[in-house]
Write a protein that binds this DNA or RNA. Structure first.
Lengths: 258, 258
DNA sequence: GAATTAATATCGCGT
DNA sequence: ACGCGATGTTAATTC
C-alpha cells in the first residue's frame, strides 16, 4: 500500500500511524489545528492555527500555512522525529545536535494524517545556471571581449577562487566574475576584492576585472566605474527565437482555474 | 468540512475536486507518480517519480520528494493554478507573468488528492534576529565601545542605508554594521563601502567602521584589518544561564521515533 | 567539522 | 515595478 490515510483520527490512532510510518521510512502529512515552538539558531513561537505538517524520512519537517513558499517553521534533514500524546495534544518533536535545535508541534485537533511510500530515482535536470554561463564563455571567449584567452577556472586567490582567470589581447591579466542574472552592488565588491588580490600577485601589470551578467543596477554600474571595472552583458542560455506558440497544449477534457 | 480526500481517484474525479478546491481557495495536496517541467528564470526537467505536490490558495505550488528541505520544483506566490486531463495524464499548470514562467506537473497515476480549508490568523514571533541585535546595541551602546553614541539607524548614504550611525568618545563619525551570526568576507566589504561613502560626506574626520557580530572568519578578520575596520563580538540575544532541564516534558502515553 | 559561494534563492521594505 | 539587504536562508563544494 503506497498511501494510508486516517480522517479525524483519535490522537492515539494517529500516534500509531506515526510510529509505523517513522519506523518504515514513509513520508507523512498531517493537517489540523496546532501550535509550534522552535529553539536553536534563533527561537520562535507560533500560536494556534490550521497548518499542513510534512515529515520526510530523511529527518526534514515542514510546517506550512496557506500562504508563502517558505514553511512558517521547519527543521532541516538529519533530524530525529518523535511523536507522543500528552495533555490531550498529539505532539511531534524534531531534534538535532550541531547545532542544537528542536521544533515542537502540538495538535489540539488532528483533521487528517497520511503516510506515503515514496520512490523517486529521477534527478532534476537544470538549465540556465551560472555553470551554464561559464561553459558558454569557455566555448566562445569572444563573448567577453575580442582576444580574451581563458587560462583557468576557479583559480585560487587570497580573496577566494575566481570564476575565470585569463589574459586580454595585450596579455594583461583578467578576472571574470559570472552572475546568472541581474546583479546588485555585492557582485561589484566581490570582483573588486579579486582584482585587489591579483594586483598583489601581478604588481604593475594592471589587472582588469570584468563582470559578466545579463544586466546590472544603476548603482552597481557606478561602483564598477569607480573601481575601473567593466561590465559585459551575457545570458546563461541563448535567448530563443520567439516562436513557442502554445507549449502547454490545449485541454480537451476540462479545466480548473485558481 | 475542513478536509476532503480521494484515494486512488480517476483522473476525472481528481479533476473535479481540484476545480472545486482552486475555486474555493482551499489548500490542496496530491501524491502520485508524475513528471515536472519548469521554464522561466531558468528551466528544468524532472523524470517520473512519486512526489507530494502542494498547491496553496495564494498561488504557491511545491513539489516535494522524500528528501531535502527545499522542494525539487516550485512556483512562488502569485501564480495561477489550472488543472486538466489530457493524454491520460492529470495535469496541473502554475503560471505567472513578471517574470514569465510556468511549472507543469503531469501525473500518470494519482494515489491521493486532499483539499483543506485553512484558517490561520497567528503571526510567528521570532527572537534572535538582526533587529534584536540592533535593539540590544541601542539599549546599551557600550556593547560597541565605551563612549559610543548612536545618532541614527538606517541612515542613508550613497552606498545604501547603514545599520547604526553615531559618534565615538572623541566625536569621530562611526558606522556600525550588524550581523546576527558569524560573518564572511562580504560583510567586511559592505562595511568598507559604507566607510568610503561617509568619508566623502565627512572629509578628514576619519570615519571609523565597526562590525558587530558573534564572530568572524579568519579571512574576514584580515580584510577588516587591511581596511582599518574593527570587530566587536556580540550576540543578538543574551546567552542563557544553562538550566533548561527537560523542556519537552516526559511522554506519558507513548512515543514514535524516526 | 569550518569556510566559501550559488540559488528558479525567498521575503520584506522602500522608492 | 525595481533596488537592496536579511534570512533560523538551503545546498554544494572544498579543505
Amino acid at each position: 500500500m503506497t498511501a494510508t490515510t486516517l480522517h479525524r483520527p483519535t490522537h492515539r490512532d494517529a500516534l500509531y500511524l506515526l510510529e509505523e510510518a517513522f519506523g518504515d521510512g514513509r513520508m507523512v502529512t498531517m493537517f489540523g489545528r496546532c501550535t509550534v515552538e522552535y529553539d536553536g539558531r534563533a527561537s520562535s513561537s507560533l500560536g494556534p492555527g490550521e497548518r499542513l505538517v510534512v515529515c520526510k524520512p530523511d529527518g526534514t519537517i515542514l510546517v506550512h500555512t496557506d500562504e508563502k513558499r517558505k514553511p512558517v517553521n521547519w527543521q532541516p534533514p538529519g533530524c530525529t522525529h518523535r511523536a507522543s500524546v500528552r495533555d490531550g495534544r498529539l505532539r511531534v518533536r524534531s531534534e538535532r545536535s550541531t547545532p542544537q535545535e528542536h521544533l515542537d508541534v502540538a495538535f489540539e485537533r488532528i483533521e487528517q494524517v497520511s503516510a506515503y511510500e515514496v520512490t523517486d530515482r529521477s534527478d532534476l535536470q537544470l538549465r540556465g545556471s551560472e555553470e551554464d554561463l561559464r561553459q558558454r564563455i569557455l566555448d566562445d571567449p569572444a563573448l567577453v571581449e575580442a582576444g580574451f584567452v581563458p587560462q583557468a577556472t576557479e583559480r585560487e586567490t587570497t580573496a577566494g577562487p575566481v570564476d575565470i582567470f585569463g589574459a586580454d589581447a595585450d596579455g594583461k591579466p583578467v578576472v571574470v566574475e559570472l552572475k546568472r542574472r541581474r546583479v546588485g552592488p555585492s557582485a561589484a565588491s566581490q570582483l573588486q576584492r579579486y582584482v585587489e588580490a591579483l594586483d598583489e600577485e601581478f604588481p604593475d601589470e594592471g589587472v582588469r576585472g570584468i563582470l559578466v551578467a545579463p544586466s546590472v543596477t544603476d548603482r552597481t554600474q557606478e561602483l564598477l566605474a569607480e573601481n575601473g571595472l567593466s561590465f559585459v552583458a551575457a545570458e546563461p542560455i541563448a535567448a530563443e527565437a520567439d516562436g513557442e506558440g502554445n507549449p502547454g497544449g490545449v485541454d480537451d477534457e476540462g479545466t480548473a482555474r485558481d
